[in-house]
Structures are given as C-alpha cells and as structure tokens.
Design a binder for these strands. Structure first.
Lengths: 348, 348
DNA sequence: CTGAAAGCGCTTACAG
DNA sequence: CTGAAAGCGCTTACAG
C-alpha cells in the first residue's frame, strides 16, 4: 500500500521540466518576459497554469533580498479608528504595488512586540506601527536592521521615524469651538485621569477655545476610563449635583464616553441631549453613528492617516540610504455634526 | 566620500564570526541547544544579542519547508463579527505556537483572492478564511498545494475543508422564540431581499419558531440592504401603514437593521421600542450595545468560531497526509438580552 | 533567445 | 561537542 504522497507546491523546476526548458527561462518569463521568445513563453505559461505554480516568495526574497510585502501592527482592532487606518494603508499600498499584511496587538504590549519581531523575521519591506505606548526597543531594532518603519498617531520622543499624527490639540479646540459657536457657555471636558498623550493635547485645545471666547466657563470632570460605562457614571454624578449649575455643553474625550454620558443623562432623567446639554465626542468611532443619540464628534481621519503612512513608507523605500530625511505629516481633524449638538444650535 | 553603507539584518555568518564558531553551531544553539556546550552557547547568545540578530524566516522556511505562521483572511473588518473571529483565532493560535497574520478583504472579492495568493506565495502553514461568497478557485488552489485551509461561517458546497459554522437556522429560531416567550403574537422578520445563505437560514428558523407556537402570526418585510438606513426606511413604511395592525415583535436579520428600525420608529413617533414593539437583532455587533436602544440580539460567537477554526487547523497540521478527515464544528448561537425587548417581557 | 552555475541565509545529516 | 558541505527554490549575470 503506497503512502499517500504529500501534496506540495510545484516548483519552478517542475514547471521547467513540464515545458521542456530551463529553470532560468521560467524565471525569465515571470520576471522579464521581454527576454524570451513568445513561443517559449507561451509554453511556459501553459505549464504554469497546468501545474498551478505559485512562486515561492521565501526563495525569491532570499535571492533578491526584497519583497513587496509590508507589515502593519495595529494597537486595537476593536477600535474602529485602527480599522480605518488599515483601510487607508491598504488603499495607499494598493496603488503602488505594496502588499499589506496586518497584526492586531489587541492592546497587549507583548503582542505588539511579537508582531514587530515576526515582521522583522519575515524581512518585510517596511512596517507601519500605531504604537500603544513608548515602544523604543522594537522600533530601534527595526531601524537598526535598515527596515523603514513609520509611526501612526503617536509622538515618540527620541525616535527618528517618519510619523503621521493627528493634531489632537486641534481636536479639542474644534470640539469646544463648535459648542461655543452653538451657544454653550458652561463647558465641561470629560476625560479619564490617565495621562494619555492625546488626552492631554485635547484638553489643551479645549482650554484654548475657552480662553479665546468671552464669558465661557470650563470645568474638568474625571471619568473612570474612556468607555461607555465611565460616561454613564459621570452622568449619574452630574444628576446628583447640587449648588453648581450643570454644564450646557460637554466635550467627551472619546465617543464611547460621550455616548455613555448621553445615555446616563437620559436614564437619570436630568437632562436630554441635545435639548438641555449638547455633547461632542472625539474620534468618530463607529459607535458615534449608532449611539443613543447620533453623536457630533471630531474625526481623527484614520483612513487619511493610514494612507499618509503608506505614502511616507514608500517614499523612504525609494530613497537611497543616507539621503532620506524623516518627515512628520499632521492630519487635520474634522468636525462631524450630528444630532447631539443639533438642538443647541437651533437654540442660538 | 564613502557611500553610506545600507544597514541590513546581520546574518548567522556574522554571528558565527563574532562568536568565533561555525554557522552550524549558531544554528544549533538556536534550534537544538542541548547539542552544544554551555560555554559555547553562552558566547553565541552574547553575539546574537550584541548584533541584534533576528533569524531570516524566509531562509529557514526554504531549508525546513515549514513555518509557524498562518494566514487569516477576513471578509470585512468593519464588521465586528470578523474582529471577534480574529481575536478567537489569535487566542487559539497563541496557545499552540502558531503565529497569526491577517488580511482584510474589505468586502472585495478580488482582494480576498489576492490575500489567498499572497499566503500561498508565502508558504504559510495554513489558512483561515471567512469566504465572502463561493470561492472555489482560491480554496482549491490552496488545497491542491497541500496547504490546509479552514472555512469560517460559510457552507461551501463541493469543497472538502474543515469548517466552523454557526447554526443560522438556530439564530432565527432563538430570536423568534424569545419574542414569543416574551408575549409577542404578531411577528415580523425583516431582511434584505438578497438571498445570502445566512439570511435564508435565519428566516427558516423564525418560521419554525412561529410554526411551533399557537396563535402567532408572521409577516416578512423586505429591507433595502442590511444596514441602519434600510431599517429606518422599513420603520417609516410601517409608520404609514393602514389596514393591517403593526407587528409587536420584530426580528431584524442584522443588528444594524434592528437599530435602524428602533430609530425610525422613534423618529416617526409611531411606536417606542420596546414599549410598543420589541426588536431583536442578529449577530451582536458592537453597534448592538450602543444603539438608540440597547439591542437584544443573538450572538454568533465570532471568538468561539475563530478559536475552533484555529483548533481544526492545528489538528489538520498534525495529522499525516491522507489520514485526515475533515470535520465541521457548529457553534451554537446565544441570546443576549438587552433593553429592546425588556418592556415586552414585563408586559407578559 | 536559452541555459549552466553561483549565491541568497538558513538547517541538517554526517564526519571528525 | 563542532564544522564542512549539501540542499531548499528562486534570481541573475554571464556564456554560448
């Protein structure tokens, strides 16, 4: 009883035999078809099709030292911002013949490092990374191996990389400015205590907008985390408030937080959004569109960031070593008006 | 003026020189450390660390014929079901030393094929695929190359693969059954005309539940698409209805549709959810949690599916060619009760 | 236009 | 315990 032969990918040699040519010729019809006689090429192509030949990219990489694959490691696919980045990067890569492969760090620093390592082992042409926190080691390792890596949505001190950023100060500014223009005079900024870099920047932007305006007050409210539940808790705290008047406009540092606030306010029967209190979120996650009330928000433009990152990577790939100068592209956030501030606007 | 030397990954040969040993010894300390003297190994490890050596996986793959990387191609990362599958697959892969790399088809059939091809070129150990539609060609190509591929959430006639399915008939059944138990007697099933496989199955499940019950009617309403807007349109159509009484319980074939219905009903002022009409969605997308009203839904258990798929792949990888028998694992859907059916329940 | 041969960076028997 | 050498499947000058 013969052992079942293990099926494997046919090799170029198989194709060569099948077509009655040498392996070099097969390679040539694939890579420089102009070098080979049409009749021969035809025969080779037929053999390729018949055998179902698919090039071994590992062997090709080994022989040429390059591949068209690039790796992208995303902080958290549960956050649609990162999915948007993936879309943008794919869009950008597609146009220039780069192939995008994804790794999800899923908020786990070790996993982020694992993917960086995997892509280094795979000798990808370059890497796109949205770092979760300061990730010097992994980044430096990449760079020291001559592999370009561009950073998304994170300012990393002491690292020289191309970077694409969103202007988070502007995010806060745009959000607060919108509330002010809409007639709000008692603003609140709701954020987690956590000193995430983007949170700090957004707070600064909110402050600037308030400082520019006349007769607008600002209070800062600490939430527990950045999710829906944290927002609900803030709303309930607000509901129990005495002495001080409620804010009439809230900037929530994330959409989830904003949704939680809107939900909590409604449930506690203290105020309706936007009738009594206008709420603006930040980020334009998917949840902003389908929350308890459609949330006005400031979008980070993940897709734009992803696309810009791919472009920067390509630029670096195409620049001779030593001549490349790292650049930072800053994407401008944009206001997305929805129902959660509509009434306030009407009330002006 | 000396040309800037292009940095590259150090090779095993570099490490060998640095440590004053042969390349075979370096390979041995990495792969079979028990074969080498501790003192030598120590020296090699130091050289590896100092040089920042990272194994070239392409060369390793070429030499051994295997890699621990597997590829997963997802139909649409914008749909959290697929993100859940990725989580589950990663969980499953992690436990057994497999490394998961992702490709997002983004609802584009060509892109799905591109990723399948890319993973075939990369000679990954195996592939996980949530097919967008009948994808015989790409799947057959994989198989003919001896590469295991397991299918998620899609029943593909004529293909022999391990598969993990969710029982979609049961999804519909559970949804309708819940409404009936909750006191609803005039059910409506809302779905797009499209004859997607899962839609058909869910409809059949709804029918079965209704058939089993006493005095419960069922009407089928065609929506335009499966998204939020389609649901809103259905609600507005319902609002204009005369003659026939409104349903008191709705099974929406997707969560987005369910959210749109709840929103449209509210906006049109015809009915409140769940006060007047109870709504159940299907899938338990992220949007179900943060919709206009928290949506009761039937979860597909994407994470479980992903995990099961990884397990099936591992099983196939570990079985000698020819001895493997393909299996189908069916995951049972589960009801997730939220606010959109709560009132109805109280009303019993 | 076509093919023989070297080389990419590893792994793995096999000698020593 | 250590190293020389063949081989994995490609690509690329270089001869012919």
């Amino acid at each position: 009883m013969p052992a079942t032969p293990k099926k494997t990918n046919p090799s170029m040699l198989d194709v060569a035999h099948h077509a009655g040519v040498s392996i070099a010729t097969v390679s040539n019809v694939i890579n420089r078809p102009e070098k080979v006689a049409e009749a021969t090429a035809e025969r080779v192509r037929a053999a390729i099709a018949e055998l179902g030949f698919v090039r071994n990219d590992a062997a090709r990489l080994l022989a040429t030292g390059t591949t068209s694959s690039i790796g992208m490691v995303l902080a958290d696919l549960d956050n649609s911002l990162y999915v948007d980045m993936a879309h943008g990067a794919q869009q950008g890569a597609d146009g220039v013949g780069l192939r995008l492969v994804l790794g999800n760090a899923a908020c786990d620093m070790r996993r982020q490092d694992d993917y960086l390592h995997l892509f280094d082992e795979a000798r990808v042409a370059g890497v796109l990374l949205s770092p979760m926190e300061d990730s010097l080691d992994g980044i430096e390792r990449m760079r020291s191996h001559g592999r370009p890596i561009v950073l998304l949505n994170y300012e990393q001190a002491g690292v020289e990389c191309c970077t694409v950023l969103v202007d988070n100060e502007q995010v806060g500014y745009v959000a607060a400015r919108h509330l002010i223009e809409t007639g709000c005079t008692r603003l609140a900024f709701v954020a987690a205590r956590d000193e995430y870099q983007p949170v700090r920047a957004r707070r600064a932007g909110v402050r600037r907008a308030v400082a520019e305006a006349q007769g607008v007050s600002l209070e800062t409210i600490d939430a527990d985390g950045l999710r829906f539940e944290g927002g609900q808790a803030v709303a309930h705290a607000l509901a129990g408030r005495t002495g001080r008047p409620l804010p009439d406009g809230v900037v929530a540092v994330t959409d989830d937080l904003g949704n939680g606030i809107a939900d909590g306010l409604h449930t506690a029967l203290v105020a309706e959004v936007p009738g009594d209190i206008a709420v603006v979120g930040c980020e334009d996650n998917r949840s902003a569109r389908s929350g308890p009330v459609a949330l006005t928000t400031v979008e980070l433009r993940g897709a734009k960031m992803g696309e810009a990152a791919a472009a920067l990577l390509l630029e670096e790939l195409n620049t001779p070593a030593g001549e490349h100068r790292h650049r930072t592209v800053t994407v401008r956030p944009a206001l997305v008006e929805r129902a959660s501030t509509a009434q306030a606007r009407l009330g002006v």
